[in-house]
Design a binder for these strands. Sequence first.
DNA 1: ACCTGAACACCGTTCAAGT
DNA 2: ACCTGAACACCGTTCAAGT
Lengths: 194, 194
Amino acid sequence: MTQTRPYHHGNLRQAVLDRAAVVLRERGAAGLSLRELSADVGVSHAAPRRHFADRQALLDAVAADGFARLGTRLREAVDAHPRYADRLRAAATAYLDFGLTEANLVELMFAHQRGAGGAQVRQGATDAFEPLLDVFRHGRQEGVVADGDAERLGLLLVATVQGITNLVACGVVPAAEAGALLDAAVGRFPGAGA
Amino acid sequence: MTQTRPYHHGNLRQAVLDRAAVVLRERGAAGLSLRELSADVGVSHAAPRRHFADRQALLDAVAADGFARLGTRLREAVDAHPRYADRLRAAATAYLDFGLTEANLVELMFAHQRGAGGAQVRQGATDAFEPLLDVFRHGRQEGVVADGDAERLGLLLVATVQGITNLVACGVVPAAEAGALLDAAVGRFPGAGA
DNA sequence: ACCTGAACACCGTTCAAGT
DNA sequence: ACCTGAACACCGTTCAAGT
């Protein structure tokens, strides 16, 4: 029977990040408060300072986490299919799904990176998009993508799907139309079939 | 010689919006504070309440203003050219220019609309994009756009350019590459030429 | 090494009161 | 009608102090 211990669990950093993910989903990035997260997690308001230098550092960590998760999803989607056209569609669909179910997270991930931690977030983004570039590199081997076009097509796919996600998230396009819009967009890429 | 008047100028609402535009450019939406704007404009911190019910209402008004300005730019770009292909390129370029010079504003405009004022902002967005739909309606008359594709192509153009703007704003794509990426994107639209 | 608790300067929001 | 000034409950950030 130990008395209520004044010190916290082994991994305060992860506990704060986990709680932040929940609050982010419910109320968006503007609703993330270090003081509230600290209280939720049962620690004094200044405790997270050991793990996050300031509020922006917490947001950066959440964003970097988001890109890591997105990258994993994209990799899984691409690896699930052997052929270029299927990989393209699967990757685009996985991205849109992620954007629709995690709208607040994606908004945070793609927010303007102002602080010192921006470099880390940008690197996370670049890594996450690597599977998409691989799709077009693979397409080049199949002969449907021209030499030297892989990177540009990859960025164009990211931009297009991100744009659709953004339009849905901000309410300009109904979520029900997102799929049709994505099909039309993907269909315009080289070698996508019909 | 009147003494220092306790009351403010004729249009506090516009004065606050003007000052908000400056602060937004310098520090982003997170840096907008009703108290600071009030002080900047020489009024008590509670005075803007007559014109903006709360902070979100101010952000909504700034966003709606932004869409109105974007709509004007797009209309001018489209009207400057008689032919479909030129209109398409001019509109896309005008959008990207706006996004690069007003990155913080665009981020605010396309942020998730949570409150009651969201409907007003969404309507502003829809109105602003109207010139782009007109481009494709015009393309249908020239015979390069298929029947019933105008709206979908318009949303696709918005999504694509918005996505490129977003990637540049968050630092994933260097601003210097944005033009080439936009050219590649626009060139994939029907009837855009080479 | 990790956390607490007080302190400071800021917020948004509300509301009675002034002119 | 429009604005002020005090009040309240929140913030982020800093820092001496505890274990």
